[in-house]
Each structure stands twice: as structure tokens, then as C-alpha cells.
Amino acid sequence: MNPASNLQKMLDGGHFAVSGELGPPKSADISTLKHHAEDMRKHVDAYNITDNQTAIVRTSSIGVAATLMQMGLEPTVQMTVRDRNRICLQSDLLGAVSFGVRNFLCLQGDHAMFGNEPGSKNVNDIDSMQLLETVKNMRDKNVFIGGEELEHPLPPVFIGAVVNPFADPFEYRPYRLAKKIAAGAQFVQTQCIFDIDRFEKWMEKVRDLGLHKKVHIIGGVTPIKSIGAARYMQKNVSGMIVPEELITRIKGSEDKKKEGLNICVETIQRLREIEGVAGVHVMAIAWEEVVPEIVERAGLYPRPSLD
């Protein structure tokens, strides 16, 4: 099968991939997001666009993807199963493919109680695993969940999933990755890596199972902007581990923002040394302007040109 996207080309070609992340705003004015996208143009291979992240109503991922396509940039559309049933998920997938989106990241989504519409219904008609299999079956078997055939075959799409080495049961997490691969995942992005020792332990088991050869594993990183941000992630973001020593290190530094960036760059450098890690996903939500610096300092610039 031909590569579906630049991101797939990069990963299949064995290049250490770099992706960025854009969080759409709580309005239809996406001018700031477009600036951020433009600023990272030469530094990332693709852009994740979050899907109502933390259950907060925002401009839709697919809507923003259309704009990115017009800008000549490559989106990875995040799709959670929280807000849409199988009719809508499959229909939105077709809609996004129709205007050129090829990378899809299938997620469960944070529970709606965390967001700004806590009284909403959590749909969860299918789960994230089933969404992966759905996209795979639409692409490879030309069928919808209900068994009916697509009227025209889907072009190649690149199917992604998320994995969280920091969630429990820890011993089960590598097997969950195996299951996601079986369901259709071609690449996976991890939850933000702050506890790199735990990540390495997880990777050891992943390699023992040979999973790094079946899927592209992209490590998630986030630069810590402030002590407050670190504390917030430590206490309020589900499934995240922020070790106390990281906070102590930033606290003890003269330039706290710079130290946050240093930690992020060091993390990427360590990730590059780990066998089986195929790329990095930089999630600098609300601090997008530092992405070029991080990518450059991590030695990942310029990006390979594959055309």
C-alpha cells in the first residue's frame, strides 16, 4: 500500500518523526491557531488537532483540518468516541477524507464531567479500540460497522491510536498496545512523558513483545511552562505522572521557563536513544511558540524533505 501521508512516509522511511499539536479555540476565530501552525511549518511533519480536548466545546478538529489543508499543511485529525455515535464517526471520517485528510488518531476522550458541558450525555457508542477497527475495516474491507459496503473504496488512510504507559494496571499496558495494533493502529502517540524511567520500563516490555516492529511509537512530550502548570498536570490531568523531582528542579532554577524547555529537550534526546521510539509528538498547548526552538535544540531540524 502506498503511504497515505507525509507522516507515514516519514515513519515508514525510518526517519525520526516530529509532530505538533494545535488546540482549537472556544470560538470560530482560528487566526491565532493559524499563526501557530505557520510558525511550526518547517519544524513538524504533521499537526494533531485536538477534538474538544478535556471535553470543552471548541472549534471542531475536522473544521480546523480543512483550513490546514488550504494552508498546505498536514493535519492528523483526532477523533474521540465520547461525543459521536457510530453513524457520525463514520460519516465524519468520510467527510475528512473527502477533502484530503489522511491521518486519524482514534481516542476514547476524557469524561464529559471534566469539561464545560458536564450535563451532557457521554455517547461512547463504540470504544476507542472499536473505532480503530472500524477505520481499518472501512479502508481494508470496504465495510461500515453495520456490514454495508462503501460505495467507493477509501483511499489509504494512516491510523493512529494513543497509549498511556503511565496509567494502570501498568503490567497490562504493553498488552493494551498489542490489542490496539491488532485492531488497526499503525502509529501510536503516548501520553506526555515526564517519568522517563517508567516509560523505559514500559518500552522494555514492548520490545520483549516485539511490538515496536509492528507499530510506530511516538513519544509525547510537553514543555513545562511554570510550576503552576506542572502542579495542574500532576493533580488534575487524568492518567499523567509528573515526578516531584522535576518540579523541584524547575523551582531551583533561575530561569524557570528555560528550565522547562531544557527538560523537554533532554527528554526528546533520551527518547531518541531508546530502541523502538520512532518519533516525538510535541504538545505545547498554550505555548506553541516554543516548538521550533525545542525541535532545533533537540537536533531534529531541518526536517527531511521526502518529496
Binding site: R82, Q108, G109, D110, H111, N122, N124, D127, S128, M129, Q130, V162, V163, N164, F166, A167, D168, P169, Y172, R176, K179, A183, Q191, S238, G239
Partner: peptide
């Protein structure tokens, strides 16, 4: 989340 295929990333 009524998941049928194992724990989400929010299990701690």
C-alpha cells in the same frame, strides 16, 4: 465510558 476492550488511560 462503557468500554468493552479494557481500561482507558485515565485508570490510576
Amino acid at each position: 465510558k462503557s468500554m468493552l476492550n479494557g481500561p482507558c488511560g485515565g485508570s490510576q
